[in-house]
């Protein structure tokens, strides 16, 4: 029972990271109509930026700022590629998927060649922090607490932005019908760029939380997380924000529980196995596609 509670908490903190990533991913999906497979890779890149910053300064504010700024800049810099793509192909989601996979490969290759000689990076131990709760062998660390609390706060802010503010209404209007949105005077390109920027901002915050949760990162982390994020988003129904919230948390919990009871080297394989089984049973997702 103790293990169960502990793994549930672990799962919630891991799940809240997935939820953040799925939200950013889905925002770009519904507003800009692209599958940004490389989004988690950008977040991992920002983790590298955090790691680099930590060598020079211990100032938490500066590190978070660097992470956010780098993620926003890179994400917005990618936008013209997708805009050119939609001019050439129309809004073809499949082609955007192919392009974003190649962007992901590019980022991964840069990380594995140029950053830390391709070796995994480790964050300082005080970055992950001591455990705040002990359950026998399993502990709940400060990093996990940050991930959970930060995740909840970011998700709440995100939904506030989307459902309670003027800009959020504009995003939702554009996601529902971009032609009608332009007819009533919403600048489509500007709004799309803004969605990339907000996804980047979310990604920068996620990078810090993820770094505190994991305590390490490697070039291949992006691939693993990207597959989980896209899978969660498909399971939840592409573009379904609330579905993504539920499915992201569920994946985190399921993965942690599996990890608590099964041998370690298989943990990713187990997560993928679960994804695969659900995907084969429900190829169109659980809650319906909303794009």
């Amino acid at each position: 029972m103790e293990i169960f509670v502990a793994q549930l908490l672990n799962g919630l903190s891991l799940g809240s990271i997935y939820v953040l990533l799925v939200l950013g991913f889905n925002l770009m999906l519904v507003v800009a109509k692209i599958i940004q497979f490389a989004y988690p890779h950008l977040v991992v890149l920002s983790m590298y930026v955090c790691w680099g910053m930590l060598k020079y300064t211990n100032n938490m504010f500066l590190v978070v700022l660097a992470s956010i700024v780098s993620c926003v800049i890179v994400n917005v810099a990618i936008e013209p590629i997708f805009r050119a793509l939609s001019k050439k192909h129309g809004l073809d989601i499949n082609v955007s998927f192919v392009v974003s996979i190649s962007i992901a490969l590019l980022i991964t290759d840069v990380m594995s060649h140029a950053l830390n000689y391709g070796f995994p990076i480790a964050f300082p131990t005080d970055w992950v922090g001591k455990s705040v709760l002990n359950f026998g062998l399993i502990t709940f660390s400060v990093g996990q607490a940050y991930a959970l609390i930060g995740g909840i706060a970011a998700v709440a802010l995100f939904f506030y932005l989307l459902y309670r503010t003027r800009q959020g209404r504009v995003f939702r209007a554009l996601s529902e019908n971009s032609v009608l949105a332009s007819i009533i005077g919403i600048p489509v390109v500007k709004t799309r760029i803004l969605s990339y920027a907000i996804a980047g901002l979310l990604g920068g915050v996620t990078a810090v939380l993820f770094a505190r949760l994991l305590g390490s990162a490697s070039p291949s982390l992006g691939d693993f997380v990207a597959m989980k994020v896209v899978a969660v988003s498909i399971l939840a129904g592409l573009g379904n924000l609330k579905g993504g919230l539920v499915c992201g948390l569920l994946l985190g919990i399921a993965e942690s529980l599996a990890m608590g009871y099964l041998p370690g080297s298989w943990s990713n394989a187990i997560a993928f196995m679960m994804i695969l089984i659900i995907m084969l049973i429900k190829p169109e997702g659980l809650f319906g596609i909303q794009i």
Binding site: R169, R172, A173, E176, N177, L180, I184, G185, I186
Partner: peptide, 17 residues
């Protein structure tokens, strides 16, 4: 044509962009 997933009020608000 309306934004069918948004409320009437939101539709009007978004019109005043």
């Amino acid at each position: 044509l309306v934004f069918s997933t948004m409320t009437v009020l939101e539709n009007l608000q978004v019109g005043g962009y």
